[in-house]
Design a protein around this nucleic acid. Sequence first.
DNA 1: ACGCCCGCGTTCCTATAGGATTTGTGGCAT
DNA 2: ATGCCACAAATCCTATAGGAACGCGGGCGT
Lengths: 230, 230
Amino acid sequence: MPDPSVARAGFPVSRQVLADHVYEALLEWLMDGRLEPGAAVSIDGMARELDVSPTPVREALARLEHTGMVRRVALKGYRVAPVFTREDFAELMEARLSIEPVNARLACSRMTPDGLEALKKAVEDLKTAPRGGTFAEYRSYLEADERFHQLIAAQANNQFLLAAYNTLGGQIQRFRLFGGVGITDAEQAIAEHQAVLEAMLSGDPERAAEMMVDHVEKVRGRAMADAPED
Amino acid sequence: MPDPSVARAGFPVSRQVLADHVYEALLEWLMDGRLEPGAAVSIDGMARELDVSPTPVREALARLEHTGMVRRVALKGYRVAPVFTREDFAELMEARLSIEPVNARLACSRMTPDGLEALKKAVEDLKTAPRGGTFAEYRSYLEADERFHQLIAAQANNQFLLAAYNTLGGQIQRFRLFGGVGITDAEQAIAEHQAVLEAMLSGDPERAAEMMVDHVEKVRGRAMADAPED
DNA sequence: ACGCCCGCGTTCCTATAGGATTTGTGGCAT
DNA sequence: ATGCCACAAATCCTATAGGAACGCGGGCGT
């Protein structure tokens, strides 16, 4: 997290306002589990917590609403979105299967050298990331996972598909955290990511799409098997 | 200082807050063309215009940002998103081709009787809508067009795909208004919509998807031919 | 004339105040 | 004990004030 107050050599990097910081903080807390699903997110309370006035908090929450991670009820306030049900998860995977293979196909055709390097690094990070039992230990693993998919969406070079993926991406990441399952499938998941990457490297868009379908379907299969709860 | 409880006497329980009304008003203005692409949207100015304080306006704009219809630059304010370039349009159509056929396929499988009736009515409204030269005259046509696609997305019965479509839908509607082309293709477009509807009626998901692909591709083709500007 | 500087208005941004609404609690009647 | 109402605290929501930055136009020096 770069500190915006420290500008580089006279270059005032795109200055951020307080609401942006609040947005980032809330997003991080949501992803960290510090804000549990279903919990109320009081505007005044958050303002006290972050030592700012309620105004920027209100703006940040308004922006967060569209991510689906918080829900608003008029005159009642915001709450963290409830835990995914089995149906929610099935819908999310269905949506991924509609969008991500397309992203993979396009990204394969339009991939830049830099993008390819970043993708390689993401897979490498997946392999080397610690995979302990606590959240802090596999946080970097989840981050690399999300980064891999995000990079492909970005390399598809379509602002609308990227926006569509990003709205899903937050939910996917949130599920990775709260879905109930830890990391029990790292080896297989890494192999699937590797397969997508190799298809990219060989410049075969159709195969890249197929490998992505395969990956998402297997993620769905594993999660559905691991978490039979409701 | 208008008293809401008196002013809204006709609305028994207006469980909406001021920011919601501002949001609706701004959305309508954006869709009406009263706010032209590229124009600055001053928070204070809008507050004066709508006779409210800047606070609700700020919140409404924060929510509008994710629709892509307004863009924000920190410490500089909001501007109406610029006109679509040819490239933007191509990307939008590419995104539609990724999502809408999937929606059509799923909607065909999961369609409710009520949904089917609403879909029939949308096509009927398309046929009977006036198609004059001015905006007011073909507004209802565009509304029915958008409603048709929105209904299919809703009937797909997947909250994430619906959200993904909705972010596109606003842009699509905005392009219909500002794309530069009026309605020169109504007969063909209606026939294509009819074809999708008939596939739905016959309960053939694959054909519904194919017809949707066909429709979007032809929309793209006509628009690219009609608006060779840039 | 041309460029520079400075004041002025506009706008964004945040904090604060106060009214309106909801929620939780305790007491009272049934 | 249970249901209902009043009261209090917390919260949401809107308005307003003022600081900071940006844009602009006029005046001054070269």
